[in-house]
Structures are given as C-alpha cells and as structure tokens.
Design a protein around this nucleic acid. Structure first.
Lengths: 263, 263
DNA sequence: CCGTCACATTGATCTGCATCAAAGCCCGAA
DNA sequence: TTCGGGCTTTGATGCAGATCAATGTGACGG
C-alpha cells in the first residue's frame, strides 16, 4: 500500500486548486454539497455521514488495489483519480474520474472485488463511507437508490463513449476532436489552455505520449495549433471539416437528476 | 430499418433453440420468469406487463438504431443481441447481450439517445415495456429500482472486463484463455463444442475472423486443439501455463441478488 | 549559475493485427 | 448429382501505433 508520493508536477493545471479554499471539511457538508444527492433526505445523509470520514490523498497514492474487496464507498470530492487495469507489472489506463463521483460503485454494491486499481492523479479529497453502511442505506432509501442508479448509468455511458472513441477513430482524429471540442466549449477564437499535462491527455485518449505528440504535429495541418499548453484554432472551417464532433462520442455525460420529467 | 433477414446459419449453435418450446408467451409470464426481478412485487410486475408487449425478431434485424431516443425498455428474454458502435458505414462490436438482460438501460433511464446500434444475432424474444411506464415504475418502486441497479452494475463490470481483456492481452492470449475457460467450465478432459460460430467468437474477443483463425493454429502449439467446432485440451498443464486465467477478466459476471447479505 | 529531473519532442525501428485476395469446405437447394 | 452461398482457412502485404533511443526544454534547488 506504500505509494509513489510524487506531488503534482508544475503547480499549473491543478483543477482542484480552483475550489481549494471553499472545500467542505466535514463529511456531512461534503454530502450536502454533492449535487446528485440533492433529492436524498437529510436523515439519510446524516446516517451516511455518521459512517464516513474525509480523507486527503496526495498525487501518486493508491486509493485501492485491483482485486481488493471494498470496505468503503468512496466519493471523490476534489482532485482526480485514474482507474487502471493491472496485469503483472503492466498498467492499462481505463478511465479518469473527476469530482463529484463514486469510485467503482458496482464493486461496492455487489460485494465483489475491484476490477481496477485507483491511483490519485492530482491531490484527492475523498469521502469514505463504510461499505456496509452504504449498502444498507441504498437498500433502505429509495431516493438514494435512484441517485446511485443515475450515477452508475452515467458511468456506464461514459465507458461506452470511451470505447467508441478508441475503436472508431484513429489517434489523430481523437486528438483533433479532443482539442476542437476543448476550444469550442469556450468562446471561439480565443486560445485555450490544456486542462492537464499532455501525458495525461494521451492516457485519456488511449495512446502513448509519443503518438500524442506526433498527432499534435499532424493536427496542425488542419488548422489546430498547439504551442506548449496553449491551443489555438487557426482555421475553424478546416478543423471542423477534418474532425467531425459526434455528440454520441464527444458529448460530456452529465449526471442529470435521474428520471426527471422531460422539459 | 429494413433488415438483413438471414436466419441462423447452420441450425447448430442456436443457444435459444434449447429452451425454445418452454418460452413464456405473455409479458407477465416473462417478467415472472426473470430471476433478477424475483424481489419485485406482483403488483409492480402487473403494472409493467400492462404496458408491455412481447416481440420476436429474426436474426439480422435491428432492434434499435444508434442515436434513437428510447421508446421502450427492452428485456432480452431469448436469443442474443449484439451492440455495435456505428460511424458512417463502419461498425465496431462493443458487446454481446444474452438473456435475461436489459438492452442499454442507461439510455432509457436517463432519457438519452442510444449510443449503440442493437442487432439481433440469433432470433430474439423481446419484452418491450413502454419507456415512460418503465421509468415511472422504477421511480415509484424501490425493489424494482434495486433490481435495475444490480443489472446496471453488472453490465458495467462486464464492460470493464471486456476492456481489460482487449487492452491487456494479445489476440492469441484472448483466444487461448477463452478456449481454456470454456473447456474447464465443463468436466475436464472431455471435448467441448464452441457455443457459436467462429466469426461471432472473433467479434466477442475483439479481433477479425482471420486473426481468430490464425490464433487457433497458434494455440494448438500450447495444448489446445480445435477441429471444426470441437475443442480438445490435449495438454492441460501447458495450456494453463501459457494462458493464465484471471477471474478479474475471465470470470463471468453474474447478476447476484443485489445487496444480499454476505453468505 | 549550473545540475537535476520530469516532461516533451523527434527520429528509427518493430510488430501485431487488419486488410486484401484466393482457395477450400460444408450444407442445402435444384 | 451439381451448384451456389456463407463460413473458414491460408498466404501476401500494409499500416497504425508501440517501442526504443536520443535530444531538447523548462522548473526548481543547490
């Protein structure tokens, strides 16, 4: 369980830092601040909070190991965590978890071993609820059950989107679409910063750093220039022509209030 | 929507055929026969059945198209369905669904478009519940909500296992482990039949038929011989040494009664 | 100021798997 | 029986992306 305790590298890019000062320090406050639990009654949240502790983990530390049996339901409140498939010494990146979300709720609910290793990417704040208490609460409270179902459904769809992205697009296309979407999501024309280190983006896009780097060069031929961590879309038309964004792949899976009546 | 209505090819391998005669003809009976709904009250099942129809679809037909918005919650009662990511003309196999299971419940629950195309592989029996009625029932009934949560959690874990299998193992290893597990699951020593056509197994293992075929040859060098659709493990020790089964990849995800107290 | 360290880039090479192409095989229909 | 169509096998070839290796760069600590 001893971890590779390297801290976040450049001090830049630390998404968690933005909200650092305003983070709730108590389990109860963290639960109250979790948007997708807003339909859950105070009593149930109290009960969960009673079986919970907050925990900070520095970058590089292992939250749990593949094949472990869950003893806590882990809510990621701040920072970020990567999930990796492990085989002997090799690791294969599977998913990046951002707050606020549950780490592999399926394993906790089913009382089954984790299929993946979880490692902190940038310093993480975790709310850890005793697994048994969590399962009891889900079994007892309908609103909580619905919330967890929504969470699990969203994670499933994210997983499918990742799979489609990797299987249906080339490395260059993945990079182009990623950058284009990043740029379009802010006001167009203005240069944008990469949200994390390139090696991490490479992981998330399912390729090596080298391939990512080469793809950056290739993508420049289609109107998207990246210098250091600054992205500029020089030729939006060419870029959009070459890199067709697909909401069924690139759209961010948002955790709607589940079963909300249609708008 | 016109489908490529080819029927199951050889008449062999038709998993559905085994139970063909005993299939329940009414929606209500199908729900009653679904093991993971056994904790759901009769009243709720009645309500679901009231908004449901049974449907048969021949091999090759499309159950739903990628990007469609769900109008039904589809229970696969018999036969099998493959889920494919689509981009222009290209298809990428994502998952094989076997009975009894829900087809992409996440899309139905979240009122979001399907991320995948569903196509019938061997003649399918579907129980189709009006989406709205299904959502209402899940929102209203706790036992049903728990059952669907268990179903969704299991599907998630299956997806993770597939991803690990593809990313962490070579084509030859996937084939070897698949065959070895197939053989071990029956009484050892006896030859086993492949449960479906080779092209379908190839899909499920994430490779082309050609690569699968070549892998069969390669695997023979490690004590696993395949002739036509007959698998014989000639040298169990060599096979097990080369193809190390990992329950966190090869173990079949079973749909436990969720939140069951530990045994 | 320089050395270190991690990240990033670039080039050279390797390789697993897909693709393309051509037979062979099996089974049902004519 | 022969024919045709789908599946399978085998071979030849191509390519995307991984791997290996060398160098460049920017940040930090001495």
């Amino acid at each position: 369980m001893e971890a590779d305790v390297r801290f976040a590298p450049a001090g830049l890019h630390d998404a968690a830092a933005q909200v650092e000062g305003s983070q709730p320090p108590t389990p109860r406050a963290a639960l109250a601040a979790t948007p997708w639990l807003n339909a859950v009654s105070r009593e149930v949240l109290d009960r969960l909070a009673g079986a919970a502790v907050m925990h900070r983990l520095p970058a590089g530390s292992i939250v749990f190991e593949q094949a472990e049996t869950p003893t806590f339901a882990q809510f990621l409140i701040g920072g970020s965590v990567e999930l990796l498939g492990v085989r002997r010494r090799e690791e294969a990146f599977v998913e990046l978890v951002r707050p606020v979300d549950l780490l592999l709720p399926a394993a906790v609910l089913n009382r089954q071993p984790y299929l993946l290793r979880a490692r902190v990417l940038s310093e993480a704040r975790l709310l850890m609820v005793q697994a048994e208490a969590f399962r009891d609460a889900v079994a007892a409270d309908h609103a909580l059950c619905l919330a967890v179902l929504a969470c699990q459904a969203t994670q499933f769809r994210r997983q499918i989107k990742l799979a489609k992205n990797v299987r249906l697009r080339s490395a260059e296309e993945r990079v182009g679409c990623y950058l284009l979407q990043l740029a379009e999501s802010c006001q167009p024309g203005a240069p944008v910063r990469l949200p994390m280190e390139k090696r991490l983006i490479a992981s998330e896009l399912g390729m090596t750093r080298e391939t990512f780097s080469r793809s950056l060069a290739a993508v420049a031929r289609h109107g998207i220039r990246v210098e250091a961590d600054l992205v500029t879309v020089e030729n939006p038309d060419a870029a959009r022509a070459r890199f067709v964004l697909d909401p069924l792949i690139d759209g961010i899976e948002t955790l709607n209030p589940l079963l909300a009546k249609e708008v």
